[in-house]
Structures are given as structure tokens and as C-alpha cells.
Amino acid sequence: MPKDKKKEEVTEVEHVDRNISSFSQISHLIDAEIITRLTLSHNKLTSVPPNIADLVNLQSLNLWNNQIEDLPPSISSLSKLRILNVGMNKLSILPRGFGSFASLEILDLTYNNLSERSLPGNFFFIQTLRALYLGDNDFEMLPGDVENLQNLQILVLRENDLLSLPKEIGKLSRLQELHIQGNRLAMIPPELGNLELVGDKKTLRLEHNPFIPRIQSEIGIEYFKRKSEAGSWKSEFHSTLVPGTVELFESGTSG
């Protein structure tokens, strides 16, 4: 840690596991104009001050494993911020206008108390977002607005309470990783078959869901068998899995 350097030379500030409970403890070490990276993982921060917006050149902010309960609305005015990690905190709500980041590419909100009700209206309008980590939260559904994240390559919804997925997920044409394991999903929207999520450099995690038996068997046997031959899996997904889904869904709702 370059503590002894003059602060105007320091563009990256890292204080990991230092028992820091307030930004004021480190503010004297920061030259707001030039800092590009701030890493304060494994501390005891409970909030982020609004003047975080003064760090106009900040590109990466890592606040993993603190006790932050809310973020200031001003945070989304960090126009150069590309990476924001607020995972493993105590967020149950995101501030109004949170989706107005100009350059955000990686947003990690893993292990908080977030649900679909925590998200501001413009959350899914971060055009530049490449990776969205929402694992270990309390989502029961995912808004169809997700289709607006047209640059999204990674979507993690692991270990939430999802009961369904919106069909709009099939419009995320750049998606390469989808983690939906450990939810309460009985079905998968057939539109998911539009995406090529099996093959080289692709990840699809579906396990630990109460899928209807037909899907379960497809996933359990067919999917894993066919994972090695990516080409045919996609067509199989359409032809056998989808009609079964619809059939059982109808009998399920009427009964």
C-alpha cells in the first residue's frame, strides 16, 4: 500500500480488511480528482457518503463485504465507473435513478437483501452493462425490462426465490453465462432456446430447481448428455422440452 507516497500520485487506493467503519477515515488519503480505483473490501462501512460523486475519474469501486444498507443516489453520476462491487452487504433497496450510470460494465450485487421491489425504474437501462451478479438475493421474479440490457453477457440469479423467468430473457442475444440454479423454477421460458448457452465459453447452470418432471428429466439426463454436443441440444430444447412445458402448465393451473 503506497501510503507513504504523496497522495496526488496515487490513483489506486486499496484498504482491505482494515476495520474501516466510515469513509471519513480514509478521505485524507484520496485525491478526489485523480483516483481511478478504490477498494475497501472486508471493512465495516455502513454507508457511502454522497460526495462519492466527487471521485470523478473513478473507474472501479469495490465495497465487497461491508455492512452498507443504502447507497446515495449520487453514486450513479460517477460517469467513468466501469466496475461496481457492492456484494455481501445489507442492501435492501437501490437508490432512485441507479440505472443512469454512463459507463458501468460490471455490477456485483451478490449476497444482499434485494428483490424486484428494490430496483428503481431505470435499473435495466444501463446500456453498457456486461455482467450483472444478483446471486444470493431475494428475487421472486425478474422484470421483463431485463431485455433492455442488450450488452449483457453474464446474468447470475443463483440462489434467489425465482418462481419464473420472463420470456424477454430470450432477447439477451449476447448472453454467455446464465446462472439460475437454486431457485423455485418449475419452468423455463421456451424463448431461452433462442440463446446459445451451451458450448465453448458458455455457462448454463440450472440445477436445484423444482422443475416439472418433464423438464427435470430433460435437464438431468438429456441436457447433461447433450451438453457435449451443443448443436443438437438447442433443437432438442425446442422440440421436446417446450411442448411438454405448455401441456403440464395448463393442466397445473386448471387443477
Binding site: H42, W64, N85, D108
Partner: peptide
Amino acid sequence: WCVKCFSCSFCDK
């Protein structure tokens, strides 16, 4: 990752 960018996602080590 670039060599300079490969780090822990949680503490940037």
C-alpha cells in the same frame, strides 16, 4: 484477462 487485470473479484488482490 490481461496479466495486469487478473485479480480476485472481491478484494482486487
